[in-house]
Nucleic acid binder design. Structure first.
Length: 570
RNA sequence: GGCGCGGUAGCUCAGCUGGUUAGAGCGCUCGACUCAUAAUCGAGAGGUCGGGAGUUCAAGUCUCCCCCACGCCA
């Protein structure tokens, strides 16, 4: 039995995520976690909300709530939606947890002891009216280059020129609009990533099995220009993890917090501690400390491509730099973007389908299946309502759902609602079993290597094989001359339904569970021996004819949704 | 402007280290079947693999140039 530590990129606390976010990390991570559990492996699957930073503070202010309350509420909202999509996290933590406070401070202390932290005196814009330092992008003014009057402190959206906040003419706070700004000196801590460059380079080079997308992004950051740059790990904010070295105060850094990019990935570790604190597990270190039993853990991270630099460089820099025996990621699965109807999903513009809305209109399995079988694995991919409708109707309703329906209804009408009395399987039945054995092995291989689209294709082919078999042996004809033979065929077909429930569970857990209930079986075991597995429903085993497993998406629904989600989110 | 990933049948995509008549699903056409959610199964049509040049006995698959789309960065 292997041990799998699996993490999904942690979603930002600010609002509900769209389907593009879901398919880029949480959903494939869940597929993998469910599959590894089904294979009998020990799995710790973690995710959390990323709660620090200016956007969270502003969102809370906009909602008129204290930041801590806002985060707590939004965490619950996201947790509930995750549950709705059947994301099987062993724990869904929070980067604002006390566990993460302690660990983040611990890492900062360890890095400091290794000589990897340096202090830098920076000039930053302070807004007297807001009573706070302003991040570059929250300062607006007139672009000195093109005269655009809503240029941001980091870049002018109009002429795309990169700017410094001090370049702006008539600068003002984007938060309050106040022009009462001044440049103040403030001290910050920098992580000396440049000193870790060759270590990181060697480490990345050792990962020959990582996707090109992943390593090419990492290599670019390591080698472009002057190479990997040192980076500030602190900010002048109220909301966040106070800057300390371990338990000790950090002289000169009072009132400052760690930068969100520094504490967010550490939450992967802290989340395991939260998992223990929540009473769900007994020992988190055996997952994370290679000196305490984690040496046999295989750690896989899932994320969108925008998160790759943090996972290949920043977080490993934190871990390597600490010189402590923490577990580093073994495999990193990154995804491209899912586009929406010819454009991008946009949280700010409310364009596309958001996770809560998706669940309002259709069950989780519909989305899980389509998103996974069309996930943006090798390049950006496209969501359109036509493709979604076609995929769901054809794959789920026609191929799988209808198979379950035709078999159970045929049996009920000819033999009753129980597995009929019958003899052993015949050559044509064994031919199917042999064919399936090959397909199941392929399916397992694709899932093991996280080839998501291919695994979905293979699963579908396994469903199709059932329909082909029925068409080939035609029990409705056989029944007329030789009811006994038809009974054998239908017994195999009924067993196939159980096989489909077991194999499909990582993709469509609710439908699988429904099938198992209808087939009156409890344990959902993985089919390790197909001959045995497909012989488990014996004569006399009662079942219920299921309700329609997947109903089709009508043209009318599709048209309505297309219109409803085209514009901004109401 | 630099870099990155792509440009393969109407659509969405596979094609590893170059090697028989370029593949899948959907869509389309025809046929079979009638147990089933007007479902299923079979057959077929459909591509000069973005363009050009080169390397090679042989290139979608390697090299160079160009075009297009997207993304990232400065």
């Amino acid at each position: 039995m292997a041990r799998h530590l699996i993490t999904s990129a942690i979603p930002y606390i600010n609002g509900i995520k769209h389907l593009g976010n879901l398919v880029g990390s949480q959903l494939p991570a869940d597929l993998y976690a469910r599959y590894q559990r089904a294979r009998g492996h020990e799995v710790l699957f973690l995710c959390a909300t990323d709660e620090h930073g200016t956007p969270a503070e502003l969102a809370a202010a906009k909602a008129g709530k204290p930041i801590a309350d806002y985060c707590a509420e939004m965490h619950e909202v996201q947790a509930k939606i995750a549950e709705g999509f059947r994301l099987s996290f062993d724990h869904f933590g929070r980067s604002s947890s006390t566990e993460n406070h302690e660990l983040t401070q611990h890492f900062a202390g360890a890095l400091e002891r290794q000589g990897l932290i340096r202090e830098v005196l920076e000039k930053q814009v302070y807004s007297n009216a807001d009573g706070r330092f302003l991040p570059d992008r929250y300062i607006e003014g007139t672009c000195p280059n093109c005269g655009y009057d809503k240029a941001r402190g980091d870049q002018c959206e109009n002429c795309t020129k990169q700017l410094d906040p001090t370049d702006l003419l008539n600068p003002r706070s984007a938060i309050s609009g106040s022009k009462d700004l001044e440049v103040r000196e403030t001290k910050h801590l920098y992580l000396r990533q440049s000193a870790l460059r060759s270590d990181l380079d060697k480490w990345i080079d050792s990962k020959s099995d990582w996707p090109v997308l992943t390593t090419s992004i990492a290599k670019k950051w390591l080698h472009d220009g002057d190479g990997l740059q040192d980076r500030g790990i602190t900010r002048d904010l109220d909301w966040g993890i106070p800057v300390k070295k371990g338990d000790a105060d950090w002289p000169g850094m009072e009132g400052k917090v760690f930068y969100v990019w520094f504490d967010a990935p550490i939450e992967y570790i802290a989340c395991a501690k939260e998992w223990v604190a929540a009473g769900k597990g007994g020992d988190w270190e055996r997952w994370w400390r290679i000196d305490k039993g984690a040496d046999d853990v295989r750690y896989t991270q899932f994320m969108g491509k925008d998160n790759v630099p943090f996972h290949t460089l920043s977080f490993p820099a934190t871990i390597l730099g600490s010189a402590e025996p923490w577990k580093l990621v073994d495999h990193l699965k990154s995804f491209n973007y899912l586009n929406y109807d010819g454009g991008q999903f946009s949280t700010s513009q409310g364009r596309g389908v958001f996770m809560d809305q998706a669940l309002e209109i259709l069950p989780a399995d519909y989305w899980r299946w389509w998103l996974l079988s069309n996930c943006p694995e090798s390049s950006d991919s496209e969501f359109t309502w036509e493709l979604f409708q076609q995929g769901v109707n054809k794959d789920l309703a026609d191929v799988l759902g209808n198979f379950v329906s035709r078999v159970t209804k045929f049996c009920r009408s000819k033999f009753g609602e129980a597995v009929p009395e019958s003899g052993p399987y015949e050559p044509e039945d064994h031919a199917l079993i042999n064919e399936l054995a090959v397909k199941v092995a392929d399916y397992e291989r694709y899932l093991d290597t996280m080839e998501v689209r291919k695994s979905a294709q293979e699963l579908r082919a396994i469903w199709v094989a059932g329909n082909e078999y029925l068409q080939r042996v035609a029990p409705w004809s056989t029944f007329k001359e030789d009811p006994g033979k038809a009974a054998v065929q239908i017994r195999l077909a009924l067993n196939l339904i159980v096989l489909y429930a077991a194999l499909s569970a990582p993709f469509i857990p609710d439908a699988s569970a429904q099938i198992m209930r209808d087939m009156q079986l409890d344990a959902l075991e993985w089919p390790t021996d197909l001959n045995d597995f497909l012989d488990q429903l014996k004569a006399g085993h009662a079942f219920d004819v299921p309700d329609v497993l997947f109903s089709k998406i009508s043209d009318e629904d599709r048209a309505n949704w297309q219109q409803r989600f085209a514009g901004g989110r109401s």
